[in-house]
Measured scan of single mutants.
Amino acid sequence: SAVVMEEGSPGEVPVLVEPPGLEDVEAALGMDRRTDAYSRSSSVSSQEEKSLHAEELVGRGIPIERVVSSEGGRPSVDLSFQPSQPLSKSSSSPELQTLQDILGDPGDKADVGRLSPEVKARSQSGTLDGESAAWSASGEDSRGQPEGPLPSSSPRSPSGLRPRGYTISDSAPSRRGKRVERDALKSRATASNAEKVPGINPSFVFLQLYHSPFFGDESNKPILLPNESQSFERSVQLLDQIPSYDTHKIAVLYVGEGQSNSELAILSNEHGSYRYTEFLTGLGRLIELKDCQPDKVYLGGLDVCGEDGQFTYCWHDDIMQAVFHIATLMPTKDVDKHRCDKKRHLGNDFVSIVYNDSGEDFKLGTIKGQFNFVHVIVTPLDYECNLVSLQCRKDMEGLVDTSVAKIVSDRNLPFVARQMALHANMASQVHHSRSNPTDIYPSKWIARLRHIKRLRQRICEEAAYSNPSLPLVHPPSHSKAPAQTPAEPTPGYEVGQRKRLISSVEDFTEFV
């Protein structure tokens, strides 16, 4: 048969007729292969192709491409040299491709048809291009793949890379869960390890502090508590009631339409708007009261037996805890006409967050109470924005700035309102402590230090009264110190430094 060459192609190359033996071998191979691939376009007849790359030819070592076609129900084999250009295909004639002069020997084609199974398996396991790669995943090629499931790999992101949580363990979102698992493993320790309690022994800490320079003076030496005195035992138990972190309780009120001037209507609300609910979820963490331990979680007086509701929101960081007394989460009882059960919590909070959804101005004093010092007013606006402002009593104007209003988005509203309420509550605590000038409020841990110092002074006084020969370590507060001759004046800087060093040991009130 003659071949018409394309323009620009090399000279004529004689194409030899395939021997009958080659056709029989390739026909047997075509019957084993699956003929249901995917359909081509209507211009080209339905056909199945599979590209198999052999590394070497037997005796020649030339890479070839073998295409199996099922045109007219008769499979045909096409061998081509890759750099050459194939002729145009037609549905009426068999596929013809040019070969190099080196394939002119018909014996070479017979060798190609009689490829060993080793070469076929190696060509099938190679990388296939384009559409033949999808075909190689079918059941027909499963014989050339190794048996057994593939090893499982770690989760992959859409980009093909490992997620960040699997790369950096410290930033993994499941870090707290692993800590819980470690605690569970520790709890399952053997009885021999049960006595080993991690941490620092208080006796060891005391020993280090006792021999430090801070205890060089007799006034700073630790003293032993009497065991037989019940009054001192009660004082030590009272110390446990003062937490070592700051605590805040903040009221949250929802004002519906037409309720801006009605205290009873505001306290009777059992739910609010959708934006109000989203605002609550951002204030803190939802907790169930019956599962809380009052000595570990500050509840601000809420009952854990269901008297004040089942849930509330709280927030904490390293040095403070805040609980929100939310009116809509507290039960509304029919027998309580004046809502006294709610007001006994909300009316005693220094700061209230008022979500004013009424469309009218909310005035300070609508919720009557002796300790309502500051109101954080949240007014929802259009386009997911809110107006946040402050209202306070006249005696609080020096501590709280009420002249600045803020426009905040719904997303950042819980954070801004919480921070403003916490700052206002700190100012309210300082303002409330002014009624007792001898006990200015600095912080909870300073209050613990003052309680310890008062307890020490009482013990020293009782020891001096029981044994008059012992001198008083600290003179009583009601006694007057003996007159001392004025010492020589020293520079102001040295006096300030000495006073600062003494105050650092005794108390921190002056620095606050």
Rank of each mutant, 00 (worst) to 15 (best):
A463R: 07
P476F: 11
H478E: 15
R344L: 08
D410F: 00
V252W: 00
H432N: 06
L413A: 14
H432G: 05
I319F: 13
Y276H: 01
L289E: 15
S262M: 03
N467E: 14
R450D: 15
I459Y: 15
P442T: 09
A265D: 07
F232D: 09
I407K: 02
L264M: 13
I367P: 03
E257N: 05
T402P: 06
K221L: 15
K480W: 12
S268F: 03
F279K: 00
V252M: 01
V430M: 11
M330N: 07
I459V: 14
F373W: 15
M426V: 07
S231P: 12
V400Q: 04
G359S: 05
F311K: 07
T485P: 14
E384A: 08
T485V: 12
N356F: 00
Q241W: 07
D317P: 02
Y441R: 10
E462Q: 11
N220D: 15
P414G: 07
Q391T: 09
H432D: 05
L381Q: 06
N372F: 04
I319C: 11
L399R: 02
S268Y: 03
D318Y: 05
L239P: 08
N356S: 00
H375G: 15
S244Q: 10
V351A: 03
D291G: 13
G492M: 12
S403N: 11
L224M: 12
Y276R: 00
D334Y: 10
V404K: 07
V252H: 00
H375F: 15
Y355C: 00
H375S: 15
S262E: 08
G258A: 05
L399A: 06
T509R: 07
D217K: 09
F371T: 09
E461D: 13
A481I: 08
D295F: 05
D401K: 04
K480A: 15
D401T: 04
T247C: 14
T328V: 01
K480R: 11
K290W: 04
E270D: 09
L387P: 01
H375P: 00
M396D: 02
G496F: 06
N425F: 03
A265L: 08
K296M: 05
D240W: 04
V378G: 00
S479P: 12
P294V: 15
A327F: 07
T485Q: 14
N261L: 05
R500A: 12
F350M: 07
S466C: 14
G496M: 10
K499D: 14
S235D: 15
Q497C: 10
Q497L: 11
P222V: 08
G284L: 05
I319P: 06
Y313P: 04
N425D: 11
A417H: 00
L264P: 12
C392A: 14
N386Q: 00
D295Q: 07
H271W: 15
N467W: 12
A251V: 02
D291C: 06
D303M: 03
H451I: 15
H338N: 14
E307C: 09
